[in-house]
C-alpha cells in the first residue's frame, strides 16, 4: 500500500497546475492548510501541544530534567530536540534507528529554536558548573501529510510558551513559566516546475525537486534555513522565497500563535 512512488501522470498534473498558479487542493501558492493548536494536552509533560496542519498531526512535548551543564558552558542549560517519523503516521515511514530524514527534521527544527534564542540557555542554569535544566523537545508525528518541519516547529513553540519549570519536583519552590525570548516561526516551501509553493502536502513533497525551510523571528530576522531534497533554486528564487516566507511567518504568528495562551 506504500505510495512512495508517484506516477508520471500525477507528477505532470501537479507541474501543469503549478504553471497556472494552482494546486491540486485548490489552495493558493502561499496558502497554508488549516492549522489548529491545542496546548496542555499531556499532564506528564512540562509543556505540550497537539497540532493539526491539514492532514499532518503531531504531538509535541517539553520535558525538563535536572542535569550537568557542559564543561565549556557552565552557565548554560541544555536543549535537545528529537522528531520521530513514527510508522503509524505513514505507510512510507520505516522502523528502526532514525535515518537521514528523521535526523534532518530534528536538527532543522532544533536550529530554528536554538538560533533564535527562543529559550535563553543562561535562564536554564541552576548552579553554575554544577546543575542546570536539560530540556527535551520531542515531536511525535502520528499522521503524516507533508511539512513536518512547520507542524513540529509550531507545536514545539506552543509547548514551550505554555511550559512550566518543574521546580516543585526538585525542592526549588513553585513551578514557574519558562522564559521565552523570541518566537521563531518556520515556513517551508517547495519548487514544483518553476513555481514555489508553501506548506507542501506529502504528494507535493514527493513531486517537488528542492524544498526550503526558513525560520524567522518576530522582528522579521532570519534565524535558520535549510535547503533539502534533490534539485536546486536560482538565487533570485531564494530571495523571492525568503521574502514570501517572512510575510507568511508574520501571518502565522498573528493568526495561529495568538490562539496559544501564555
Amino acid at each position: 500500500m506504500s505510495d512512495d512512488v508517484v506516477s508520471d501522470i500525477q507528477r505532470q498534473y501537479l507541474v501543469d497546475l503549478a504553471d497556472k498558479g494552482r494546486r491540486f487542493d485548490d489552495r493558493g501558492l502561499d496558502e497554508y492548510r488549516d492549522v489548529s493548536i491545542e496546548t496542555d494536552v499531556i499532564n506528564q509533560a512540562e509543556g505540550s501541544a497537539h497540532v493539526r496542519l491539514g492532514g499532518t498531526e503531531v504531538y509535541c512535548g517539553v520535558k525538563m530534567e535536572m542535569g550537568d551543564p557542559y564543561s565549556d558552558s557552565p552557565n548554560q542549560g541544555v536543549i535537545t530536540t528529537t522528531a520521530e517519523r513514527n510508522q503509524m503516521a505513514s505507510p512510507d515511514f520505516e522502523g528502526g534507528p532514525p535515518r537521514g530524514p528523521s535526523v534532518e527534521v530534528s536538527r532543522v527544527i532544533d536550529r530554528g529554536i536554538r538560533e533564535s534564542d527562543a529559550v535563553p540557555l543562561e535562564s536554564l542554569c541552576i548552579e553554575p558548573g554544577e546543575k542546570c535544566w536539560v530540556v527535551y523537545l520531542d515531536v511525535h508525528c502520528v499522521d503524516f501529510d507533508g511539512n513536518l518541519f512547520d507542524a513540529g516547529s509550531l507545536g514545539l513553540l506552543a509547548a514551550l510558551m505554555t511550559a512550566q519549570i518543574p521546580n516543585h519536583r526538585h525542592d526549588l519552590g513553585e513551578p514557574e513559566p519558562l522564559e521565552i525570548r523570541s518566537q521563531p516561526i518556520m515556513t517551508t516551501a517547495v519548487k514544483i516546475g518553476d513555481e514555489i509553493l508553501f506548506d507542501p502536502t506529502d504528494l507535493e513533497e514527493k513531486v517537488s525537486s528542492p524544498r526550503i525551510s526558513v525560520s524567522t523571528d518576530e522582528h522579521g530576522r532570519i534565524r535558520a534555513a535549510q535547503k533539502s531534497l534533490a534539485g536546486g533554486f536560482q538565487p533570485e528564487e531564494i530571495q523571492e522565497t525568503i521574502r514570501r516566507s517572512r510575510r507568511k511567518a508574520e501571518e502565522l504568528r498573528s493568526n495561529v500563535l495568538e490562539t496559544v495562551k501564555k
Binding site: 499531556i42 506528564q44 504531538y59 512535548g61 517539553v62 520521530e84 510508522q87 532514525p98 520531542d138 511525535h140
Partner: peptide, 17 residues
C-alpha cells in the same frame, strides 16, 4: 504489533524508540 511510548508520555522522559 509495534508498541511504543512517546518520550514525553511518562514522568522521566524515555529515549525515543
Amino acid at each position: 504489533v509495534t508498541y511504543n511510548m512517546a518520550p514525553f508520555s511518562v514522568s522521566d522522559r524515555t529515549r525515543p524508540g
